[in-house]
Amino acid sequence: MPQTFAAADAVELAVVDRSGFIESRHSGIAIVLAADGTIATKLGDPSALILPRSSLKPLQALACLVGGAPLDGERLGLATASHSGTERHVAAVRDILSAAGLGEEDLACPPAWPGDTAARDELVRELGQPSRIRMNCSGKHAAMLLTCVTNGWDTEGYLSPEHPLQLHTREVIERLLGEKVAATAIDGCGAPVYATTLFGLARAVHRIGNSSTTSPFALHRSAGVLVQAVRENPWTIDGPGRPDTIVNERLGVFAKGGAEGVMVMVAPDGTTVALKMLDGSGRAATAVALRLLERAGALASPDVAATMSQLPLSVSGGGQDVGAIRPAF
């Protein structure tokens, strides 16, 4: 059975400090690629297999774009997102569905409450219910449906790994990875998610993040358009006050977290980091990735420190901050 790395192949990436006592430790693997694509740093075994979870979304969104889906700006940002379900997010997803001539009922992702606290509270006050369009992956699903309509593919069963959409998506993903996927699993939203090496994921994200909108190659032009769309609309990729949006807004870093402690980032200069926490916790992933980019010289230390102060890294005791979640290096 395919499986991810063992504890013996991991290194300590983060600790939880409570009142000067190290209470918990997060081990994992990480890799940093320099702007030219060479390996700058390896922590643990980056050849190990992982499930990228939502960190795969930039690759899936690019497959939709390459497949002819008319996506740009905010709508392309939503296709790449794990959004927090605000009204602004939902409106953009509805725009994608409208372009496909479809509605919320055509989404195959499960119903969910908004991740944004204010949006959820408002929905509760209005006696609303969880819905498919509020689910954090609804932008990806809407983009997949639009790609199906654009190509004349049946929208029924669009999540099946054997559906033409998913076969096309897998082919694009493997081109970007530079390797064959090792296994196929079902993500939390119901879409296929593919086992890749951490190095392969880093290589794919590096290629996307270093692409130009004026490249002579169509795939790279589309990748450049995708990254530009997210950087110009950072609210789309995550949500107000949420980590991926914060690092994009403050540092110009293209970031996409995934469930089970996965994170990928591309700095403005093209330096790329990918990591996976062995215990599946993502609470330290953003901080560790930023620190790795700082160590690589891609981000200035004062800028990283200021951004870290905006992230949910404090440890509380008696209603006060008594410690912090912090990188272990």
Results as ranks from 00 to 15, higher is better:
Thr80Gly: 00
Ile22Asp: 00
Gly178Asn: 08
Ser314Trp: 14
Asp116Ala: 02
Leu107Lys: 12
Val172Pro: 08
Asp321Ile: 15
Ser215Lys: 08
Phe5Arg: 00
Asp72Gln: 14
Pro164Tyr: 13
Leu167Lys: 15
Ser24Arg: 07
Gly190Trp: 11
Gly101Tyr: 09
Arg203Met: 03
Asp121Leu: 13
Asp45Leu: 10
Ile31Pro: 09
Leu176Thr: 05
Asn233Tyr: 11
Ala300Val: 13
Ile173Phe: 05
Arg291Cys: 12
Ser98Ala: 15
Ser316Gln: 15
Ser309Cys: 07
His168Val: 03
Gln228Ile: 01
Ala267Phe: 02
His26Met: 03
Trp153Asp: 13
Ala202Cys: 02
Ala202Met: 01
Pro70Phe: 00
Thr213Phe: 00
Asp303Cys: 10
Leu290Tyr: 05
Asp116Glu: 11
Ile96Met: 03
Glu249Ile: 08
Leu278Val: 03
Gly200Arg: 11
Ser55Tyr: 05
Leu165Ile: 03
Ile237Thr: 07
Leu78Thr: 05
Pro192Asn: 10
Gly178Asp: 05
Leu159Cys: 04
Thr307Pro: 14
Ser215Cys: 02
Ala287Gln: 08
Tyr158Glu: 10
Pro234Thr: 13
Gly101Pro: 12
Leu278Met: 12
Ile246Tyr: 09
Asn210Gln: 11
Phe217Pro: 00
Gly258His: 07
Leu123Pro: 04
Val322Met: 02
Arg94Ile: 01
Ala185Cys: 02
Asp303Asn: 14
Gly323Leu: 08
His168Met: 03
Ile186Trp: 06
Pro52Val: 07
Glu179Met: 00
Pro164Val: 00
